[in-house]
Amino acid sequence: MKRRLPIITVFTLLMAPGLSCLAGGDTTPVAKMGVLDLRKTSLFSKPVPISGEWGFYWDRLLTPDSLPSATPTYIPFPLLWSDVTLNGAKIPSQGYATYTLTILLPSKRPRLGLEVPDAYCSFALYVNGIVQAQNGQPATTEEKAKPFWVTRTVVLPANGSDTLVMVMQVANFWHNRGGPYKEILLGDKDQLILKNTATQPMTSCWPAVCSWEACFFWAYSYSDATTARSSISRYSVSFLATGW
């Protein structure tokens, strides 16, 4: 027992960082009826997903100027069109639509940016009336529309407005899937830029936890206590070098 205690202690210390990022609930606000209230949310610590109920206009490509004359329905965002039901019927995966969302910002915040992932299969995202991100060309016909897939990180203008009004046009005439399927992130522009320029980004903390477990049990199962401690040390240095 005395020989095992140091190894178990080392294992606990190695597991703690990974387990801490898995623990705790998600208290990030979600949009309701087309409004996302972030006034009590810190945008300094990490980017937040701007998901929830967005305004939705099927079969219409609207600009910010034309919104006041239109009445939306509200659907979850992101959600593929094949999973959307309007008036009791599923909508097709090919077509075009407009999404809207109003975001209420906290009074204290960093310089903001957006991480805008691809959608099926073209989009234009307006923020406060200006196109801030675009993939391809959304349009009402296949002849005028163009598909494109890429994740974009954009820096929003520095101004005193405490509100972001987002209008997103999406069109798909090519793929058997249509619409947005990944979350848009809002947060500190520097964090978002660093996240997307890292050479080896960590997309999940769970693989890290599994890697620590594998290293520990391999060393402990196939070596005596002294060799195990040495093996764990080597694997720890190797794993930390990957960016943990």
Rank of each mutant, 00 (worst) to 15 (best):
L114E: 02
S161P: 05
A89P: 03
K108C: 11
S122Y: 02
K146C: 09
Q137S: 08
L156F: 03
Q169F: 10
D118T: 10
E143L: 13
F148T: 05
T153W: 01
P76H: 02
Q169C: 08
M168N: 00
R152W: 04
R60L: 13
A171E: 03
D118P: 06
L114N: 01
L86Y: 00
P78V: 12
Q134T: 05
L194I: 09
N159K: 02
D83S: 10
Q134L: 03
D162I: 02
L67M: 08
L101Y: 01
N135Q: 12
Y99I: 03
V154T: 06
G136C: 00
P78H: 11
Y96T: 05
N135D: 13
S69Q: 12
K144L: 15
T151S: 11
T63V: 14
K144G: 07
A171P: 04
V154W: 01
P78R: 02
G129S: 07
T153I: 13
G178Q: 05
W174N: 08
T153F: 01
Y126K: 08
Q169A: 11
D190A: 14
L86F: 01
S82I: 15
K144E: 14
T153N: 01
W81L: 13
A133D: 01
N87S: 13
I103C: 07
P117N: 03
Y126R: 05
S107R: 15
I184E: 00
Y120A: 07
M166I: 14
L79C: 11
W81P: 07
A97P: 01
R177N: 15
N159P: 03
T153D: 04
S107C: 11
S66G: 07
T197H: 05
K108M: 10
R111L: 13
I75A: 00
N196P: 03
L86Q: 08
A133V: 05
L86R: 05
S82E: 15
D162V: 05
W58D: 15
T151R: 11
T197S: 13
Y120I: 06
L194T: 11
W174S: 05
D190C: 09
R60I: 08
F77E: 02
R177E: 15
V170K: 01
D83N: 11
D118M: 09
Y96P: 01
T71N: 09
L105T: 04
P180L: 06
E142C: 10
L101G: 01
F148C: 10
L62A: 13
G113C: 04
T141A: 04
A89Y: 06
P117I: 07
I103W: 00
A133R: 00
P76E: 07
S69P: 00
V170I: 15
K108H: 11
S66N: 11
F148W: 13
R109N: 01
K182G: 02
R177S: 12
I103T: 00
L112N: 00
S122T: 07
L62C: 09
F77K: 09
K189F: 04
A171S: 15
T141F: 06
D190Q: 14
T85V: 15
D162P: 10
G88D: 06
D162N: 13
A119C: 14
D65K: 09
L186F: 03
P78A: 07
A70T: 09
K182Q: 13
N87L: 10
F148Y: 14
P117K: 00
L67Y: 04
L105A: 10
R111E: 12
G136A: 05
S82P: 04
P106I: 04
G160D: 14
D59G: 10
T140K: 12
K189P: 00
F77C: 07
T73Y: 02
A133C: 09
D162Y: 06
